[in-house]
Amino acid sequence: MSKHGLKTPLSVLDLAPVLEGQTPADAFRNSLLLAQQVEKLGYKRFWMAEHHNMVSVASSATAVLLGYIAGGTSTIRVGSGGIMLPNHAPLVVAEQFGTLASLYPNRIDLGLGRAPGTDQVTARALRRDRLAAGSEFPEQVQELQQYLSFDNHTGPVRAIPGEGLDIPIWILGSSTDSAYLAAAMGLPYAFASHFAPAQLHAALSIYRKNFKPSEFLQAPYTMACVNVIAADTDAAANRLATSFYQLFLGIIRGRLRRMGPPIDSMEGVWNEYEAAHAQQMLACSFIGSSDTVQHGLQQFLNDTKVDEVMATAHIYDQADRLHSYELLRKLSDNLV
């Protein structure tokens, strides 16, 4: 059992969603209110993800935003889920997270991904002459580890602050590639099953079978991110989920939009192919009343045996979003 009393620790992934009729500044305030609420509820971590060129996501300057969240909370771990390392010089990431860890000791996590977190045109704008950087991800992680190590105090290039600080590094994945890397490096592994569930089981198996103990971690540690939309009834939750479905439909169609209010039904909004495509990619979604969500999550834990669950909730109304996380926290006491 974790120090928070949960049998399976619960954490939160937030993208600072921008709602129709609102601004990124509103999104930031909503994210901070959410972080403060889930901290009170006993959630373990509050992570934010780096995305670019998306009108519905305001967490592009992730390290800056994490400072705002950490500054407005006091106990919950705050981190990246993740920083897309190929978009950045490892030294800059070491300095940014070294600064965060210096300001908020023992509370900062550094989750790293290899994808650009955006479309290819924007990736070129981000990486300029470094378009092949994704293939250099293992070397970039090692370079970052070197900057954060105490041993680097004699190196020609040093991360100040950052050097010698205890900043847990996680490897993030949405396929099997990063599972091999996390296992070889002896690092904790988080899988993005909230939008890429297809290879979840294969990735977890690869990671566990190939894990090599390290100075950072003696045994495999896994976390899976899932979508959770909980409400007082199944009908209410399914209606709330239509905001999520409309947002995802915009991604499928290449017509990005801010998250809009829920509607009564998706019938006539998406076609059969689009609905099937969305359902396939959102297979790790638990939508419904507390009983419905509990049943689905328990089956997920039985099937995956992950050590920790990270939940994300694309819900339009802030009160409904907070209520969803409250219900999830209450039902988690019954998960084994």
Results as ranks from 00 to 15, higher is better:
His4Ile: 07
Lys7Ile: 14
Leu10Ile: 15
Ser11Trp: 03
Ser11Arg: 03
Ala16Glu: 12
Ala16Thr: 14
Gln22Ile: 03
Ala25Thr: 13
Asp26Gln: 06
Phe28His: 12
Phe28Val: 14
Phe28Glu: 12
Asn30Arg: 15
Leu33Lys: 13
Leu34Phe: 01
Gln37Trp: 02
Gly42Thr: 05
Lys44Ile: 03
Met48Gln: 15
His51Lys: 07
Asn53Asp: 14
Ala58Val: 12
Ala61Gly: 05
Ala63Pro: 02
Leu66Thr: 11
Gly67Met: 06
Arg77Leu: 04
Val78Gln: 06
Gly81His: 13
Ile83Val: 15
Ile83Ala: 10
Leu85Glu: 09
Ala89His: 02
Leu91Gly: 11
Val93Ala: 02
Val93Tyr: 00
Ala94Ser: 03
Phe97Ser: 08
Leu103Asp: 04
Leu103Gly: 05
Leu103Ser: 11
Tyr104Trp: 11
Pro105Asp: 00
Arg107Met: 06
Arg107Thr: 07
Asp109Glu: 14
Leu110Ile: 04
Leu112Trp: 06
Gly117Thr: 09
Thr118Leu: 03
Thr118Met: 02
Val121Pro: 01
Val121Ile: 13
Arg124Leu: 07
Arg124Trp: 03
Ala125Arg: 07
Ala125Phe: 05
Leu126Tyr: 04
Asp129Gly: 05
Ala132Gly: 14
Ala133Cys: 07
Pro138Gln: 07
Gln140His: 05
Val141His: 09
Glu143Val: 14
Leu144Glu: 11
Gln146Pro: 01
Ser149Gly: 08
Ser149Asn: 08
Asn152Lys: 01
Asn152Phe: 01
Thr154Glu: 06
Gly155Cys: 05
Gly155Leu: 00
Ile160Tyr: 00
Ile167Glu: 03
Trp170Val: 12
Trp170Tyr: 14
Leu172Asp: 11
Ser174Gln: 04
Ser175Thr: 14
Thr176Arg: 06
Ser178Lys: 10
Ser178Cys: 12
Ala179Phe: 10
Met185Asp: 05
Gly186Glu: 03
Gly186Ala: 13
Tyr189Ala: 08
Tyr189Pro: 09
Ala190Cys: 13
Ala192Leu: 08
Ala192Lys: 04
Pro197Phe: 00
Asn210Ile: 00
Phe211Asp: 04
Pro213Phe: 04
Leu217Ser: 05
Tyr221His: 14
Thr222Pro: 09
Cys225Ile: 15
Val228Ala: 11
Ile229Arg: 09
Ala230Phe: 13
Asp232Glu: 15
Asp234Tyr: 08
Ala235Gln: 15
Ala236Phe: 09
Ala237Trp: 10
Ser243Ile: 00
Leu247Trp: 14
Arg258Ala: 11
Met259Gly: 02
Gly260Arg: 04
Ile263Ala: 01
Asp264Gln: 01
Met266Ala: 01
Val269Asp: 07
Trp270Ala: 07
Asn271Asp: 15
Glu272Ile: 05
Tyr273Ser: 08
Tyr273Arg: 09
Glu274Asn: 04
Glu274Ile: 01
Leu282Asn: 11
Ala283Glu: 11
Ser289Asp: 13
Ser289Gln: 12
Ser290Ala: 15
Ser290Leu: 06
Val293His: 09
Val293Cys: 13
Leu297Asn: 07
Asn302Val: 11
Asp303Trp: 01
Asp303Val: 13
Lys305Tyr: 00
Thr312His: 03
Ile315Lys: 04
Ile315Ser: 08
Tyr316Arg: 06
Gln318Gly: 06
Arg321Gln: 12
Leu322Ala: 08
Leu328Ile: 12
Arg329Asn: 12
Lys330Arg: 15
Leu331Glu: 10
